[in-house]
């Protein structure tokens, strides 16, 4: 059961005056997003006269998010709230790995290889996976998708590895 979330830590690393760590961290993260957006849109033109420049609306929304994030964090300080939920690593890791692998492999290796391999990588995300079963289902799904997307839906995409076709 290594991938089930462990018990939430009783002692959090946050200082004691933070009474609702979940909100506090959430609010701080929103503020960080807002600051990043402010920085990213800082090179854009602002108001000229009474008409909006390209940067006006993004900066307006970013300031709004900064204030809201601050308010959420403040709630986390003032009011008792839940602890930060425990994360598990297995699901997110293998699902992300499968997605990234698919993205990298689809052009050079084609749909058949990348979809099947990505299926198996994703299947590692659960400790209950039975491999024979996964290989059979993965194979069927790959064949299904290889027929569905290019033929039924008319969305062309590479099917087989490039080096085999040439």
């Amino acid at each position: 059961m290594s991938d089930t979330p462990s018990e939430a830590p009783v002692k959090s690393i946050l200082p004691e005056w933070v009474r609702g760590p979940q909100d506090f961290v959430g609010g701080i993260a929103m503020m960080a997003v807002a600051l990043f957006a402010l920085w990213a849109s800082s090179d854009l033109q602002g108001m000229h006269g009474f008409s909006f420049g390209a940067g006006t609306a993004p900066r307006m929304f970013a300031v709004l998010l900064l204030l809201l994030g601050g308010a959420v964090a403040l709630v986390g300080v003032l009011r008792d709230g839940p602890h930060i939920a425990a994360y598990s690593w297995r699901g997110p890791l293998f699902v992300s790995a499968a997605i990234v692998f698919f993205a990298v492999a689809i052009r050079p290796l084609g749909l058949v290889v990348s979809a099947f391999a990505a299926f198996l990588i994703a299947a590692m995300g659960s400790h209950e996976t039975k491999w024979i079963e996964a290989i059979i289902v993965g194979g069927c799904l790959t064949i299904g998708c290889a027929l569905l997307f290019p033929y039924v839906l008319g969305l062309p995409m590479p099917m087989f590895p490039r080096f085999l076709i040439q």
């Binding site: 499968a98 997605i99 299926f119 996964a134 799904l141």
Partner: peptide, 20 residues
Amino acid sequence: VPYRLMFPSIVIFCAIGIYS
């Protein structure tokens, strides 16, 4: 149908869908 088979299928189907 167990979730252990359903979830990788959904992941792949989504990935192909977005790519397309």
